[in-house]
Design a binder for these strands. Structure first.
Lengths: 248, 248
DNA sequence: TCACACCCTTGATCTAGGTCAATGCCAATT
DNA sequence: AATTGGCATTGACCTAGATCAAGGGTGTGA
């Protein structure tokens, strides 16, 4: 646990995130084999709802490829996205059978699933899996709390900049490249999905993106491809501390 | 793990939350003894900052009595509370030495502390502690995500009602009483702290509390004692689903 | 090639909540 | 009993972002 990396790792040995090298280094073969026995793969189409809030959920899973969103919706239709699930993220929760939010595939996805009961038994038998899950959960908690600052206190422009920073960083991490001063990436989300993530309306999202473009902070190729000539400029706009987060 | 309660337990056997009955039932004596060897107690005064964001943190701890807040502050002073720590909550994180937020004592507090390194070693030796910590972290993650909906999508009035619901419920839980249709409790927070929790200004908090009083949803004795004649009315005002949360 | 469905942008207007400022309350101190 | 200081309330006004509305690309299927 001491030297475990706190950033999300891309896939390493095989295609299942549970086997990330942070765990593998400590796992013996028996554990890997027992994991293999209870897992299976499922794919989902873009736009498909993977799990409905309130539904019985008999599996836990990790994202192999594609992007999903977690969101909560009030009776009157207001919705708030509470998480973005990217490859290597873990969906579901041992010890609870009812899903607390909707999980929706943004693009085509492949998930590595484990039936919940055997997975729970496995966690008791092989503590390393639980330890890795604890690390990941703590990271998600930190991310959720950082997002609370975004939602509660930032202006619309800062919110957009914060989202672009996250998307840029995660894109860089997925490509195993270092985040550098200039970068470009695709926006996986519609303006409406961004609005739901940021607690804004889609019109405000659109206006602020236009404003950032007008001010030269970003450039757009089409509507869904962004390039950031100077990443530090974006950081300034986001209102974050320069050091870029609370890792380690 | 299967039957572990998902609500936070009040203190049970002794005064350290790590020994909550959910864990105790599965622990053998050896584990309890080894915990005792590395723990110590610290008290803090009301208003005292327990941990500064960015500081080195060589211990983890759990709240024995009193209330603390977790908060993040931007350079220009805007602050957002990201958590309320009540008795039995766990502060700090194994595997990370730098504190990501300020922890401030709201009233006089007693904390049960563990030096971080020995605690991490203990977690490896005795998986039950890690499993309990995972449960607690997952609960906190759910709470953080529910709060994201509050921050991102609720109106000021709904935000206040949501906060009062949480305070009322936690108060009922601490007193080991069942949440019933009418209840009363003290507000532990100033109007400003409530504003920081809710992403509002203190004036708006004050106005909305006055409005809820005017409309008969709550009554005030002094400025810090609330009684709620009909808890369901408060739930309606909060915009939440009637069933009252996502537990189990 | 037309038409329909999506997604996105932009403008005009409205409003919830922020900002600024005055005042009130009460407990502690002198 | 006067003073000080920390909270809290209330009013008047302002503004960021919501709401309402119109139109513009682009892709897909008939």
């Amino acid at each position: 646990m001491q030297n475990a990396p706190t950033v999300k790792l891309p896939l390493e040995c095989g295609d299942c995130p549970i086997r990330h090298n942070a765990v593998c280094a400590r796992c013996n073969n028996e554990e890997l084999i027992s994991l293999d026995k209870i897992k299976y793969y499922r794919s989902f189409q873009a736009g498909q709802t993977i799990i409905w809030s309130g539904d019985e959920m008999d599996f836990v899973a990790s994202v192999v490829s594609g992007i999903a969103t977690l969101s909560q919706t009030m009776e009157d239709g207001r919705t708030q996205m509470v998480g973005l699930m990217l490859p290597s993220d873990f969906v579901g929760r041992p010890g609870r059978s009812i899903a607390p939010y909707d999980v929706v595939a943004v693009n085509d996805m492949l998930m590595c699933c484990f039936r919940r009961k055997p997975f729970e038994e496995l966690m008791i038998k092989t503590p390393h899996v639980g330890q890795r899950l604890l690390e990941m959960t703590l990271d998600e908690l930190d991310a959720a709390r950082e997002w609370m600052l975004v939602l509660g206190r930032k202006t619309a422009r800062e919110k957009i900049a914060s989202l672009l920073m996250i998307l840029g960083r995660r894109n860089a991490a997925l490509n195993m490249t270092v985040a550098k001063s200039s970068m470009e990436f695709d926006l996986p989300l519609t303006r409406e999905a961004m609005a739901d993530y940021l607690g804004l309306t889609l019109e405000t999202v659109s206006r602020q993106i236009s404003a950032l473009k007008r001010d030269g902070v970003i450039e757009l190729q089409g509507k869904r491809h962004v390039s950031v000539p100077d990443f530090n400029r974006l950081i300034d706009e986001s209102g974050d501390d320069a050091d870029g987060g609370l890792l380690t």
